[in-house]
Amino acid sequence: MIKQVAPAVEVTALRRVFAGGKGLRKRGPEHVALDGVDLVVDAGEVHGLLGPNGAGKTTLCKILSTVLLPSGGMAKVLGHDVVTHTAQVRTSMGIVFGGERGLYGRLTARQNLKFWGALHGLHGKQLRTRVDALLDRVGLRDRADDRVEAFSRGMKQRVHLARGMVGDPALLLLDEPTTGMDPVAAKDFRALVGELRAERRTVLITTHDMVEAEQVCDRVSLIDSGRILATESPNALSEWITRFERVDALVPPELVSRLRTLPGVGSVSTSDDGRTRFETTEEGVAAQLVRSLVEAGVTTVTTSKPSLEEVYLHVFGGNGMAVRR
C-alpha cells in the first residue's frame, strides 16, 4: 500500500507555448498548447484528463514527466517542482504510453523490465523479485521470456504497465493507454488500473474514451484548447446535463402535440418505428412527462440519463473529430 501526501499533482497557471514554424527560422505564429491550466490530483486518486486530440493532454503529461519545460506557471509532483527537482520527480513517477512504441521489441518481457528496473536503481534479488511479481501481476509469467515484438497489442500494453510500475512509483501517468486495443484487452487493462486504485497509487490517465473515463476515474477533468473546463466526478459531470434527460415512449400523435407544449420540453422527435423521444431542458421535467404519459395510458416508457460521452459532446459540441492547432 502506497502512502502519499496530498496532493500528488499540483498545477497552477501552467502555460506552454511552442514557437511557430519549423527549422532554424521559427517565425510562424506561436501555438499555445496549455493556457493557464490549474489542476489538483489528490493522492490515491485515479484522475482522468478527457479531451479531444490536440487539447493539451499529452503536453501536460510531458511537463509533469519532466520531458518538457513549461513556459509559465508551476507544476509539482508529490511536492517536487518539475522544473527544478527533476531527479525527485523522476524517481517517484512511472509513465505508460499507449501503442506499440516505448518497448524494446527484441528483448523479452523480463529483459525489458530488468532494463527499466536498473534505471530505477534496482539490482540483484530485489530486481528479480520485483520483475517476477510484476510479470505475475500483469499475467505474463508464462510469456516472460518471449520477445516482446511477438506479443499482441494487449500483451504489449501489459508490459508497458509493468514497465511503468517497475520503480514502484507513487504516481503513474497513463497516456492514452488503451489506444488501439480490442475491447476485451481494454477491459482487462482497466481492471489492472482498478487494482492500482486499491493500492492507493495516484493515476493520471489521459484519454478521449468516455467509457474509459467513466469506468476507471474518481474524477475527470475536461480539457480543451489548453484549458481545464471542469473537474468533477464522472457522475457529477453527467448530472450537469440532467436537465437534458430523455424520455422515450410510444405516444399517440394527439398526446405528442399536447406534451410538446409543456414548459421544459425541448426537442420532440418521432422515429420510423413510431417511438417518440422528448428531450428535456429543465430538471424535473422528465418526471412530469412520465406522469403525464402514464396518466394517458402509455405504458411503454423509458427514461435515460446522459452518458459521459454526451457530456463530452455537449461541452466540446461541434468540434467533431477536428484536431486543434
Binding site: K62, S65, T66, V67, A87, R90, T91, M93, I95, F97, G99, E100, R101, G102, L103, Y104, G105, W116, A118, L119, H120, G121, R163, G167
Partner: peptide, 13 residues
C-alpha cells in the same frame, strides 16, 4: 525509433 527516448529522459538513470 523505438520510442524509448522520452522514457529514458524521464528516468532517473
Amino acid at each position: 525509433r523505438a520510442g524509448t527516448l522520452p522514457l529514458l529522459v524521464a528516468s532517473p538513470g
